[in-house]
Design a protein around this nucleic acid. Structure first.
Lengths: 205, 205
DNA sequence: GATGCAACCGACCTGTTGGTTGGTCTGGTA
DNA sequence: TACCAGACCAACCAACAGGTCGGTTGCATC
């Protein structure tokens, strides 16, 4: 049991540092040695625990990335209050975090999506899984909103979900280089504008 | 003069093939040899015309990418009709093109943005320039729309522009892997919904 | 037909990459 | 104390990267 703990501790260290470097430099620009050097570990240790660099990355996605996206974008909108308010707050916090993080390279998930889109099916599979969970969760939040009278019942839930995901992924890309704070502010204002147009109103037909 | 023509022809061949491969495999996963092999050219030819791989890529951005983005996203919205209609048509065509292109890896510009964001300032500079032109053009289209009575004059032009750019970049990322056609359709419907909320209406305060 | 030069060739250099392998250390067990 | 297996080390490998360089080709000029 003690043994197993040590194993897991080492793997955890590798994966945390791996995610950090993969995020900041990209997957293909980060060598296994880069990660190992920072942890004072050897190649042998790495290939004792993982079959390949690709396998290692998939583990990172499943062990770390899933949880991060979950706690940042999924959990916060699972309440039973007004979903439009929940999503607004959720996006606002996620973007605010990006504004204040000086080492920002964009949205973790979308960076990796971009790097592997249409190129590496083995890695895309778990990434698409995360995307799907996010989408399903948004859809059900919107449907809940319709049911509870917060959102106009003519709204296409799937459409709204895709639209929200798109805009979030895009704004995170745009926020990296120039005027992140200003762009966040403008984005949030337009998001509220959009939300106003899909919320339930007494004047709706 | 004839000489100069040959020079330009070879460079054009290299840059066109380079853009093709950089787009499909990513910049860092495409070697100079990959490009040269497909053109049956040698390393010597390459380094005779370009100082480095990075310099080569910057040339591609300035010579090819700028024009592509211009003709796809900027020119089509420069008319004097209803800008919301122009933008709708423009996005619709750009996305339709993506749907039918089997070799699709996302939005050229945003793929490169993602790859170099926060990492390579020399390459980011010309990419940001393109982004800026796009943004300025959207802003002025929206302002034109306000002036001509198509768009509510309380609308924040810069905000709407950023919101549009975000959503476009995002939907292109989402359209690569799964259900591009369905996602395009849903996206466009929500875009129209958003547009409806910012267009000039007689009932506005 | 000798000269000059832009355009191009391809062998080579140096460093890095993902991955392998034989060996060492250490803590628990009999 | 002898042993054993999991965890790790460090030297090594072939493939490949970006980039260099001395040399060749082909065409215009005189």
């Amino acid at each position: 049991m003690e043994k197993n703990l040590k194993r897991l501790a080492t793997m955890q260290r590798m994966e945390v540092k791996g995610l950090e470097l993969f995020y900041s430099k990209g997957y293909s620009n980060t060598s296994v040695d880069d990660i190992l050097k920072e942890l004072s570990l050897s190649k042998g240790a790495f290939y004792y625990h993982y079959e390949s660099k690709e396998d290692f990355f998939i583990q990172i996605i499943q062990n770390l990335l899933v949880r991060k996206v979950y706690s940042m974008l999924i959990e916060p909108i699972e309440g039973h209050e007004n979903p439009l308010q929940l999503i607004t707050n959720c996006f606002d916090e996620a973007l605010e975090c990006a504004v204040h993080n000086e080492m920002d390279y964009g949205f973790l998930l979308s960076n990796f999506l971009n790097e592997f889109n249409g190129r590496n099916p083995r890695i895309m599979a778990p990434l698409n899984d995360i995307l799907k969970v996010w989408e399903v969760n948004l859809v059900s939040a919107i449907q809940r909103g319709k049911f509870n009278g917060y959102i106009d019942r003519h709204v296409d839930s799937e459409g709204a979900a895709v639209y929200l995901m798109s805009s979030f992924i895009g704004i995170r890309t745009l926020m990296v280089e120039s005027a992140p704070s200003a762009r966040k502010y403008r984005f949030m204002a337009q998001l509220r504008q959009y939300f106003k147009s899909i919320e339930a109103s007494p004047t709706s037909v």
